[in-house]
């Protein structure tokens, strides 16, 4: 087991390293560089200006040299400097990363809170009207274009019924007396984007819970437990759900990997100060350092959570061999 984990860990690190070069290379393949963008915004830039700036930014060096410079900076803990905002990458990404995680985890939590009980319920009522209604609710969420849902929610609950703000992350320019008022203020802005993201992912969790539960309830020990005369609640939650839980946890672990990049479009619609929007902008504006750090975080999170899921899965199901 340890052997397997170590081997996979090494593989993962190698893949991350290779992908980082691949991404870097991709970025250089893209037409244009920061200087080109400056030329566009200022017609009077001369060819001397262009040569001077390219040299200053190190853009006149070959890709591998630039990659090496970048990588050695990273290894020394220097994340670089954002060309768009002209401040260090860590300064701009730090708070946005936190915002994105807050949004993603809030919506994940909301989705799970709704999906798991409903999933169990519809599994127990499989084939009935309840099951159909819940199933429809799940499918409609999965099938909804997220930006469309976002727009509709804004129109409904920010313009027609002004319950929530149309966009933003927090009320600007207000002195919060206590941490509690900060939390409530942030929560107020989180409601609509969280609902949007959660509704879209409920379906997946719900259907998964339902089939895991169906599977679990079909097992012999459930019949035994029932035959023993245990109460329904005990049978369902202690025997049935506990068995479904293992695969559910794997599923949730896997979905952590999307936490970083899953909210880009929702963040854009709600002008939410998250990292998804930043990633998109940094690529559009050729902000190399920001884009590369985002790539790295995104890629690493996916690979690492995949690894964790694999390991957990093997623990959960000893029949799967780890060779």
């Amino acid at each position: 087991m340890t052997n397997f984990i170590i081997r996979r860990l090494i593989q993962t690190v190698i893949v991350i390293a290779l992908l980082s070069y691949f991404c870097f290379y991709l970025m250089t393949l893209m037409p244009g560089d920061p200087v080109d963008l400056m030329i566009q915004s200022n017609p009077r830039i001369t060819s001397e200006d262009v040569a001077r700036l390219r040299n200053l930014y190190g853009l006149d060096q070959p890709t591998y040299v630039r990659y090496w410079n970048w990588m050695s900076g990273i290894l020394q803990g220097d994340l670089g400097y954002s060309r768009t905002y002209r401040i260090p990458v860590s300064d701009i990404m730090g708070p946005k990363l936190v915002n994105t995680f807050v949004l993603s985890f809030a919506s994940l939590a909301l989705a799970l809170i709704i999906a798991i009980p409903l999933g169990v319920w519809s599994a127990l009522r499989a084939g009935t009207k309840t099951d159909y209604v819940i199933g429809f609710f799940a499918f409609s969420g999965v099938s909804m274009p997220s930006f469309w849902l976002g727009l509709i929610l804004i129109i409904a609950f920010a313009v027609w019924i002004p319950w929530f703000p149309a966009g933003g992350t927090e009320t600007i320019g207000v002195d919060h007396g206590s941490w509690w008022s900060i939390v409530t203020d942030r929560a107020y802005y989180l409601v609509l984007p969280t609902v949007t993201l959660a509704y879209i992912s409920i379906g997946r969790f719900l259907r998964f819970t339902r089939s895991a539960m169906l599977e679990a309830m079909r097992n012999d020990y459930i019949r035994t437990a029932r035959a023993k005369g245990l109460s329904r609640v005990v049978v369902i939650w202690q025997h049935g759900f506990r068995n479904a839980l293992l695969s559910l946890i794997t599923m949730v672990t896997l979905s952590f990997s999307g936490v970083f990049s899953g909210a880009t479009i929702t963040e854009t619609v709600f002008a939410y100060q998250g990292v998804g929007k930043l990633v998109y902008d940094s690529i559009i504006a050729n902000d190399f350092n920001v884009a590369m750090i985002s790539f790295m975080i995104s890629v690493s999170m996916v690979l690492i959570f995949n690894l964790i899921a694999d390991i957990m899965y093997s623990f959960a199901d000893p029949r799967i061999s780890l060779s």
């Binding site: 804004i154 129109i155 920010a158 149309a166 933003g168 002008a271």
Partner: peptide, 18 residues
Amino acid sequence: VKLIPNTGTLEANLRSGT
């Protein structure tokens, strides 16, 4: 000065007083 990157929601922001 507030940045609202999506023009589609700009009007909603204006009308809701954001």
